[in-house]
Design a protein around this nucleic acid. Structure first.
Length: 420
RNA sequence: GGAGGGUUGGCUGAGAGGUUGAAAGCACCGCUUUCGAAAAGCGGAAUCCGAGAAAUUGGAUCACAGGUUCAAAUCCUGUACCCUCCGCCA
């Protein structure tokens, strides 16, 4: 959510921003409604003022006849007030739903483009793995080593179902434990949040009202979150933080649920796109400064890059184009890992910053040195998703005999150096 | 699932239709006093939306949403959350 004052004063910038994001929004209509809203509001406030004044006179008036007359006058005021309040309610409903459709403005440095195909590589690390044998894909490798069972996964869950088994589980847990240590050292506090989350919190993060189709819903009207970002942002909702507590650096570990509505034809096999997975997620709340947001954005993205470098997997980082940004995002980087069999880089991480778009909806504020209230800034970035990371890991570290080398940093967590 | 009780400012807590944004206490911030502090005294202080260059000023906010009434923190209904008891499950 943006500040209505800001929208009023910068409508052209917002229109351009929406265009860059390829998001449809009717700013003129919103401003029209806003004008109407203020007009009715000022009349309602005037009438309420009259009512308050008269009310106080009635309270002190002893003469019953005068009192009766005053009450009669109050009735007249009330009649108009009832009508105006009804008008205000109608306008407010429309105003609020329009406000939720206004996207945040992308940063100047975000490239133009329509979809992820237009994202721009800004960095590539490591040599693309070459083999002196015909490499296998992760499905074949992991199935052969009994790390995963897709057939039975489909039997039990359906489309995109999978079981992780044996060393598939051990490797996942090794990654989680390593990531815990790695990110704790970077000053993150770990969280295991609730992943059944109420509607309000999804509005706060900007996943609703758009995007309901991508969420699993419970019969009580709650939703299963697709990322720990949602509950972690809700953690401080409606709170006033102390400035000395900022920044907050949280590492959420949770299962993640995504319906993948509309991507039925994409990545239909394997562990790239599944309905249910685990993820460690970095979430940061900082003071309301663009400079600080940008600095943390670089920092959390770099954390993930360093993590991948320590595993030794070739990757590249892209800056996402306007069309690939969500409602609230100002700028986003994706980290993509090399997948040898596909001869492609595949996304495993997204680092985004939002300015106060989310915290305004969530009502997360702090008082600055001058006692002034501010909305905090929020950011988030994937730390590591499992099992998606396994795809690239097993394919890059496969050997001619079908066994897989365990990356050195994981060996002590895994308890072995070869999966065979 | 059933039956009760509750939700008031940073905290404790009064308030039971009419000048209540809300007593009192604690905590907080100034000032007086003091070499300094404590104590004491005096004073200040919520948040949001408007108007104003500013002093100032109008409105809203007692969980949330409706309703009754000329007037609601106060009465009624619904929702959320918390507590107690019973049942069910582990």
């Amino acid at each position: 959510m943006l500040d209505i004052k800001f929208i009023r004063e910068n409508k052209d910038i917002i229109k351009e921003g929406a265009k860059k994001k390829h998001i449809e929004v009717d700013i003129d209509k919103l401003l029209d409604i806003d004008e109407k809203r203020l007009e009715i509001l000022s009349r309602v406030e005037f009438l309420r003022g009259e009512q308050n004044k008269m009310n106080n006179s009635i309270a002190t008036e002893k003469d019953m006849a005068v009192r009766g007359q005053m009450i009669g006058e109050m009735k007249m005021v009330k009649e108009e007030l009832v009508g105006k309040e009804e008008e205000l309610r109608t306008v407010m409903t429309e105003w609020q739903s329009l406000m939720l459709t206004v996207p945040n403005i992308p940063d100047m440095s975000v490239p133009e483009g329509e979809s992820d195909a237009d994202n721009q590589e800004i960095k590539a690390w490591g040599e693309k793995t070459s083999f002196n044998f015909e490499p296998k894909d992760h499905i074949e490798l992991m199935t052969n080593l009994k790390m995963v069972d897709f057939e039975r996964g489909v039997k039990v869950h359906g489309f995109r179902g999978y079981f992780l088994t044996g060393d598939g589980v051990r490797l996942s847990m090794a990654i989680w434990n390593y990531a815990m240590d790695f990110f704790s050292e970077k000053g993150f506090t770990p969280f295991i949040p609730p992943i059944v989350v109420n509607r309000k919190t999804f509005f706060g993060t900007g996943y609703l009202p758009q995007g309901e189709d991508d969420l699993y819903k419970t019969q009580d009207g709650d939703f299963l979150a697709g990322t720990a970002e949602v509950p972690l942002m809700g953690f401080h909702a409606d709170e006033i933080l102390k400035i000395e507590e900022l920044p907050k650096k949280y590492l959420g570990f949770s299962p993640c649920y995504r319906r993948e509505a509309g991507s039925h034809s994409k990545d239909v096999k394997g562990l790239i796109r599944v309905h249910e997975f685990y993820k460690l997620e970095q979430v940061v709340l900082c003071t309301a400064s663009h400079t600080e947001s940008v600095a943390f954005h670089e920092e959390i993205n770099r954390n993930t890059e360093e993590f991948i470098e320590s595993l030794g997997i070739p990757y590249r980082t892209v800056v996402n184009c306007g069309g690939d940004l969500g409602m609230g995002q100002v700028k986003k980087y994706d980290v993509e890992l090399w997948v040898p069999k596909e001869e492609k880089y595949r996304e495993i991480s997204s680092a985004s910053y939002f300015h106060d778009f989310q915290t305004r909806r969530m009502n997360i504020r702090y008082k600055d040195e001058n006692g002034k209230m501010n909305y905090a800034h929020s950011l988030n970035c994937t730390a590591i998703p499992t099992p998606r990371i396994l795809v690239s890991m097993v394919e890059n570290f496969q050997q001619a005999d079908g066994t897989i080398k365990v990356p050195e940093v994981l060996q002590k967590y895994m308890g072995k150096d070869i999966i065979s």
